[in-house]
Amino acid sequence: MIKRPRTDFWQVGIAPLPIQDVGASTLSAVRDRITWLPEAGRWRYLADPFGLVRGDALHVFVEAFDYRIKRAHIERHEFALADLSWRGQATVLEQPFHLSYPQVFEHGGETWMVPESYQAGEVALYRATDGSLNHWQRECALLAGLPGADASLIEHGGRWWMFYTLVGPNARDQRELHVAHAPALTGPWTPLAINPVRVSRDGARPAGRPFIGRDCVLTLPVQDSSTGYGSATRLLRFPVLTPEQVVIEAATERLTGNLVSHSHTAGLHTLNGCGDAFTLIDVKRIDRSRGKQWLDFKRRLRRLMG
């Protein structure tokens, strides 16, 4: 008997909770007040949310994945800040290779994005070219020649820090955490000599932008893939972070999809603070219908026919 395929579908939500207060109990307490992004459509999903608050709007940037082409582009969804009513969406970045994890942030009077683009063999920096946040220009490669994934940046202690993983054999990207540092956003970026700083499937691949916790310690959300890719998220604290030394304290608490959703309980693999009052999350359900096999067959046939 042919084994049924496993297809992951993600859903993005806006939780009314500051990132510094996120935990299993606090997420459960706000589950009925989470605002979910619209469904992406058949054989599509939205994941990896990052956000910006501008004026009266909350902008949520997401990976928009389509199983029919097995590739994603970056979309921006706009919400009214007052009541989180959805105002619409736009495709803001598309390349001939896969894009995801669109970390957006403001620095030096500009708005920047560092999307995952490991298929291009680089970690690249993009800049918004107008106030609409719909047009982006590639500025430079921060790390070139590396299949870096889910790069997560923060300015801390007078330096810029990048947490990332590397795509490679035997699910390397799910078990290794790497760190690089730079004197400025545009570099030059130097990977730590002691990389990888953590090797563990229960918490290595970045799951959101680093933030400063209530205890004033730099904290990084990471994926816990010990029971499957993106099955949960946990937090890593960095009481010591220098180019020569890294001390990591891993939280034992796992944040899972069932804390916030009745339908998408198989995973939670992104936590991102947005403004002072919101945390963006994504949760996963698993589909085992045979329609995916027919979809894959049609895609291979189109490729063979050019």
Rank of each mutant, 00 (worst) to 15 (best):
G13V: 09
G23F: 01
A24N: 03
A29Y: 06
V30A: 08
I34G: 03
E39A: 15
L52V: 04
A57W: 09
F61W: 15
V62A: 12
E63I: 09
D66A: 04
D66S: 03
R71V: 03
E75R: 01
D83Q: 02
H98D: 04
V104Y: 04
M113C: 09
V114D: 07
Y118L: 12
Y126D: 00
A128L: 03
G131F: 02
G131Q: 13
G131R: 04
R138H: 14
E139W: 04
A141T: 06
L146H: 14
A151M: 05
E155R: 07
G157R: 01
G158S: 07
W160H: 10
W160M: 07
P169F: 06
A171W: 13
A180V: 07
A182D: 03
T190G: 05
T190S: 13
L192P: 00
L192N: 11
A193P: 00
N195G: 09
N195Y: 11
N195S: 07
V197K: 07
V199E: 13
G203M: 12
P210H: 08
P210A: 10
P210L: 01
R214M: 14
L220Q: 09
P221F: 08
D224N: 12
S226G: 15
A232K: 02
A232G: 08
R234Y: 01
R234M: 10
F238G: 14
P239E: 06
T242K: 05
P243G: 02
Q245Y: 11
V247Y: 10
T256P: 00
H262P: 00
H262L: 11
H264I: 02
G267S: 07
G267N: 05
H269I: 04
H269W: 01
F278P: 02
D282S: 04
V283F: 00
D287N: 10
S289P: 00
R290L: 15
R290N: 14
R303T: 15
L304Y: 13
